[in-house]
């Protein structure tokens, strides 16, 4: 499987390391022609305003939307914002997932946190419960899902932090910052 990682800005190398560990081939995507021949794409964490601006400048918006009609795309944090239809402020968005996100929903960096999420859709690891240790950094919340999007994981208070719509996946947190590759495995399964 050949997986592209949008490498305009952000923690794309962390995603790359995780995918290489799982035996996938990776390609850094900075221009539209880099999408040719890819099976799936990851949009990493970073600053969504920066990623959006660079994607617009280099003509990636339409090609990415078209790619998403045929292939799996996963956005982590900034990537999830970029996939959304609505981020409640004007900034470039792909607008291909039926989700509304709120940026910096938990506050500033001082409020960034780690927590265990219930993730019954992932296999249990090493006999542990079906939870996933999630790292949230100036993270967005998925305020609502509609249409064919559905909530995949939520905080104990019910706020949505992961959503799926067909072969599109959005997470508010960063599995690429952990040593746990189950989310990446889940995505590669989705992309098959």
């Amino acid at each position: 499987m050949k997986v592209g990682i949008l490498a305009l800005q952000g923690d794309f190398i962390e995603h790359q390391a995780m995918l290489l560990r799982l035996g996938a081939e990776t390609v850094e995507v900075r221009l539209p022609q880099h999408l040719d021949g890819l099976d799936a794409l990851i949009i990493p964490g970073g600053e969504s305003t920066t990623i959006g601006k660079l994607a617009e400048t280099y003509g990636l918006m339409e090609p990415l939307r078209q790619f998403g009609e045929q292939h799996a795309i996963w956005g982590t944090c900034a990537g999830a914002i970029f996939l959304s239809k609505d981020a409640r402020r004007p900034q470039p968005l792909l607008g291909i997932m039926d989700i509304m996100v709120m940026r910096n929903a938990f506050g500033r960096q001082v409020d960034s946190f780690e927590v265990d999420l219930d993730t019954p859709f992932l296999p249990a690891s090493n006999g542990h419960q079906k939870t996933f240790h999630a790292v949230f950094i100036r993270a967005p919340l998925i305020e609502s899902v509609w249409g064919s999007a559905r909530s995949l994981a939520a905080l104990p208070n019910g706020r949505i932090v992961a959503a799926r719509q067909g072969r599109l996946l959005a997470t508010s947190f960063h599995p690429e910052l952990t040593g746990d590759d189950r989310f990446h495995r889940y995505f590669l399964e989705m992309a098959k």
Binding site: A7, L8, Q9, G10, D11, F12, I13, E14, G45, G46, E47, T50, C77, A78, Q109, V110, D111, S112, F113, E114, V115, D116, H133, V135, F136, I137, R138, H174, L177
Partner: peptide, 22 residues
Amino acid sequence: MEQETATFAVKKGLAQMLKGGV
């Protein structure tokens, strides 16, 4: 597990999100 803030992972993690940027 309760939420944990100000861990080294989230401190270092913000800088990881800034990579490839100005």
